[in-house]
Design a protein around this nucleic acid. Structure first.
Length: 468
DNA sequence: TTTTGAGTTGTTCGA
DNA sequence: GTCGAACAACTCAAA
């Protein structure tokens, strides 16, 4: 019996994996393969934090496969060529994968499918990474949604996501395994220096850890989700984002697990966050270069300031605004940042510093373990005002008020900026008002004064209106 | 085709 | 200290 090749991409799991089930068919031998591709045109190279995660996630996937009598073939190079090689080495006559939605991947997959079909092989992409395919959700007029609430209302009127697929208990092996790299060959982990200590302390990549995190969240935190999800000092969010980004868990698994426990306002709010992910992918599908091009074309003439100095202070968490700096230090240390704080630091970069949102998007891409081509670009454009359903231009976060509102005791800020530990709660978000401010080499002075920066931003955004 | 209601996450000012 | 209004009209989606 001829083998099937199952191409793992951003779906590093065995449960609820349609491509894997399709490959297995009626008990055919399966060749699981992952390709590290930094050569195909148009593909965005993975960021450093994502590479760290990928190493561990692939390790976990390989271990799961070996426990089922199989293994993961690791190969490097342009995917279309490598797929053909691996298929030939194993005598595979069918290739299955779960769909990706960015332009470069879609074009690559279409070429590959054509090439395989031309040689008489089966090639099929399946729905494994979204609740609803982008072409399944349309307005009454048949167009794509540009407003989230209408989009999500339409999704909720569609049939609920179906049952999840079980993980296969065993996977028939091919007669002979072909060549494979080792993970060490790929040098995905940082060595000189090893900056991943904070990530190791924070995260456990892999499908089993993802499932555990989901059930822990549903058991312990969902009930309080609506009240506490905006408080960065409280572990009130699911922290599933990197697991989702690598497909160690599917949105359908999350949906089913959450709704099976009964609907509540908290459940609905949590599902809405999955809805934002769906909306992001919908936008990505309909706008190929969401991470580079302004969704609203009038922003092409926005007078961004090209200031490497303020950008670098922002990256390193040395802006002088505690909630901003805490967020960027959390990101640098753990590869993750609380959602509320992401909005605050993004508003600060694009509005207080007037730095192009793409610079922030690139930094997040490199440093986030959950870097996602749809969510990251959509989120940045949303805050900057250039995106779909974006914030009005006058909505400029005040980093002091945001800090005091969402981190009232300063616990979050002190956790990431221990230098501020001696300040009372009243001053922790405005340390410059202390009788004896900290020396600038201990904690920096503000690089801009928010009131003046806000006025400057309003003028810049108004200029956009007039020129448009 | 035209009309109408609605619209994630905010801040500041002045009464 | 608290509250409503203004910010700026605009785009989208559906009737």
């Amino acid at each position: 019996m001829s083998a099937s090749l199952v191409w793992f991409r951003n779906d590093l799991r065995l449960a609820d994996n349609p491509a894997l089930i399709a490959g297995l068919g009626s008990g055919r031998p399966v060749v699981p393969v992952y390709i590290f591709d930094e050569e195909s045109p148009g593909l965005r190279p993975m960021g450093a934090a994502s590479r760290w995660w990928l190493h561990h996630s692939l390790h976990a996937l390989d271990a799961s496969l070996r426990a089922r009598g199989s293994r993961l073939i690791l190969r490097r190079g342009p995917a279309e060529q490598v797929i053909a090689e691996v298929a030939a080495e194993h005598g595979a006559t069918a290739v299955y994968w779960n769909r990706a939605y960015d332009q470069a991947a879609r074009e690559r997959d279409a070429r590959l499918k054509q090439a395989l079909n031309d040689r008489g092989a089966v090639a099929e992409g399946l729905k494994g990474n979204l609740l609803y395919e982008p072409w399944e959700v349309k307005t009454a007029a048949g167009s794509a949604f540009k407003v989230f609430s209408a989009f999500w209302r339409a999704c909720r009127e569609l049939p609920s996501p179906g049952a999840t697929l079980p993980a296969p208990k065993t996977l028939p092996a091919p007669a002979k395994w072909g060549a494979s790299d080792t993970l060490a060959d790929w040098n995905l982990l940082p060595t000189a220096p090893d900056w991943a200590g904070g990530m190791r302390a924070t995260w456990t990549p892999g499908e089993a850890a993802a499932a555990h995190r989901l059930s822990t969240f549903l058991d312990n935190a969902l009930a309080n989700y609506r009240q506490a999800r905006d408080l960065p000092a409280v572990p009130a969010t699911s922290r599933l984002s990197p697991h989702l980004a690598f497909g160690e868990i599917s949105p359908r698994q999350i949906w089913r697990a959450a709704t099976t426990r009964g609907m509540s306002a908290a459940t609905e709010k949590f599902l809405t966050e999955l809805g934002w992910r769906e909306f992001s992918y919908n936008l990505l599908f309909h706008n190929g270069d969401l991470s580079r091009r302004n969704f609203r074309a009038e922003f092409d003439s926005f007078p961004w300031l090209d200031d490497e100095g303020t950008l670098e202070a922002w990256r390193r968490g040395r802006t002088g605004y505690p909630i901003v700096d805490a967020g960027l230090r959390e990101l640098w240390t753990t590869g993750w940042m609380h959602n509320r704080v992401r909005m605050i630091v993004a508003s600060f970069l694009t509005k207080d510093l007037l730095v192009d949102w793409r610079a922030g998007e690139r930094w997040f891409w490199d440093t986030l373990v959950d870097a996602d081509p749809a969510n990251n670009a959509m989120g940045w454009q949303w805050v900057a005002g250039s995106g779909a359903d974006a914030a009005p231009y006058f909505r400029i976060f005040n980093p002091v008020l945001q800090g005091e509102k969402f981190d009232p005791r300063g616990d979050y800020v002190r956790r990431w900026i221990p230098e501020l530990g001696s300040l009372p709660a009243k001053l922790v978000h405005r340390p410059w008002e202390a009788d004896e401010p900290l020396p600038p080499d201990v904690y920096p002075e503000r690089i801009v004064e928010h009131g003046a920066a806000r006025d400057r931003a309003l003028i810049a955004f108004r200029s956009l209106k007039k020129s448009a």
